[in-house]
Design a binder for these strands. Structure first.
Lengths: 325, 325
DNA sequence: CTGTTAGCGCGTTCAC
DNA sequence: GTGAACGCGCTAACAG
């Protein structure tokens, strides 16, 4: 495995010159360039990027913290990040942390240790203060609404989208509205619960605790939601399901019990996943792809220019009407 | 950002000693160890891993080539890889290549350039010979049945599973059997087509070209399958759908046309995804999780001991009976 | 047990 | 246009 020195010798030039052609620098005579290229070819030279990274202090790699890859929500987010990373010739270090704080720390340590140039946090269990401790080592971008001095973030307004969806159901005559959550006390969940409470108070509607079910995230959970609904004495006539997979799972399960959608229960999903299209589920398009794209761009621009201050960017959601309400 | 030299000075020892405590080597007196640890703490020292990688010639990172992350099939495969990587404290560089040869090459070049220690190829468009050219730079594991001298592979038997599924349908009275494929001419698809032809010849059944539809991979495609079926004069009474998402999409679409499953069309899916459980779809469990696990382990063991020869490992599929046949 | 020193492979001033 | 030489930060002989 040849190194730059051997190429230099083989081409009859100095290592500097080799380095210059390697990095497409100007001021190299055509003849020497040719000689170097020929030597590279002949000796099957491949640069050792670890040396480059050491010298440059950068790795052209961004780390991504997410609890689970195998979840439609995160897959879509990654898709957005990955597409943008490709454009800028960056690599992605995907770190599935399962919401384990130790694992999340490990990823932040990759940043400290200069293995990655920046971090995108799709979802976390660490406190913001803990995350902020690492802000000095490189840009950190969160996919949620945080306004912490040293952290950037991109998100869509969970609060407004939830209000909006409930209002939508209310306007269509629904007075008993229930909803699910993933993690009961995540930032996003708290915002949603607040929105639920606020809008129903404003509308003079009822907001019952028993109409909330948490711990729902995948398609299987749709069945749990159905069971939960069936067990209730006073059932909601409409449900906000935080994830189209859950919505689809619920739809299938509840139909088995003879319920019609939307006649017996109306549902609104989230994420605008392909599955919602197939089932005609009305859903909130929360721009996951765009959030991923922006998350990368924010990190990238701050890697290029570390002087740039953190930013917070809000994306507009939209409600996609289909036939489940 | 302190370096090892400064820590040495601060602790009043040599860099070697610092390195020793950093790497948990024996033969360091308790007092010096304490001093070093204290200095590390006090100066907020963090190792620059690029220097370590340069010196060691390894990066504790494995690259994964896959066309798409946002696909249930690959997500599940990644899940298996990631879980195992975590155990061995390895990082994953996920490279979404979209079946673009240039992108696949770029990943193999990461291996040449020593940015990663090994590569797992979930699916590819490069020829095996092209891939094999890189075998000298580190272990390469494919998730398909290849028996190339320098490449390892893990897979389940597509041929046998397809035969098996068709036999299963045949035994239940189906004589007109259709199927879908993802990429028409991928290795796996070729094996499946062969299995289809072989088993039907053996059974004395009919194998029609028009009963094959390719280019299907996601849930939306289920609708295409339904349209395709409806357009036919002589329709298959049973379908093998190469992906549970497709199967689910098809099921929904065909029911809209008043077809019953399995009465009017029987279906068998692939992958044993959660969605198949929800819909009660009979499916082939192709052990994606285990394939991922093994792929990592094969790569890992060969990184530890480069002298180990490539291996080919076959995993047993199983048919999971539910209610779609 | 501990320190000196020579690399690992490459980018980059700076002088020519 | 070109090259000598230093430095990036760390590991590992080797000598003691």
């Amino acid at each position: 495995m040849a190194n730059i020195k051997q190429i230099a010798k083989a081409a009859g030039v100095s290592v500097t010159t080799v380095s210059r052609v390697l990095n497409a620098h100007p001021y190299v005579s055509e003849s020497k360039r040719k000689a170097v290229e020929e030597a590279i070819e002949r000796l099957h030279y491949a640069r050792n990027m670890n040396a480059v990274h050491l010298v440059k202090g950068m790795t052209q790699t961004i780390g991504v913290i997410l609890p689970q890859i195998q979840t439609a929500y995160f897959s879509k987010l990654i898709e957005g990040i990955a597409a943008e990373a490709l454009k800028h010739n960056y690599q992605l270090m995907l770190c599935q942390t399962g919401y384990r704080p130790e694992e999340e720390i490990k990823v932040l340590d990759l940043l400290r240790n200069k293995r990655i140039d920046g971090v995108i946090i799709c979802s976390r269990s660490l406190s913001l203060d803990q995350v902020e401790d690492y802000a000095g080592y490189g840009p950190i971008v969160l996919c949620e609404d945080v306004r912490q001095r040293k952290l950037s973030s991109v998100y869509y307004d969970h609060y407004a989208s939830f209000r909006n969806a409930i209002r939508y159901l209310w306007d269509r005559g629904h007075r008993r509205i229930g909803f699910t959550l993933n993690r009961r006390n995540s930032q996003n969940s708290l915002r949603r619960r607040q929105a639920y409470a606020d809008i129903l108070r404003e509308l003079g509607g009822e907001a019952r605790d028993e109409w909330l079910l948490d711990g729902c995230s995948e398609i299987r959970d749709g069945r749990l939601v159905a069971d939960w609904l069936l067990r209730m004495k006073e059932r909601p006539t409409a449900l906000l399901l935080t994830g189209d997979e859950i919505a689809a799972g619920f739809l299938v399960a509840i139909k088995e019990h003879g319920f019609g959608i939307p006649e017996d229960v109306a549902i609104v999903g989230f994420d605008n996943q392909p599955i919602s299209e197939v089932f005609g589920i009305t859903t909130i398009d929360n721009r996951l792809l765009d959030i991923g794209t922006q998350a990368f761009n924010i990190a990238y621009s701050r890697i290029q220019d570390p002087a740039l201050p953190p930013v917070t960017e809000e994306l507009q959601f939209r409600l996609i009407e289909r036939s489940s309400v």
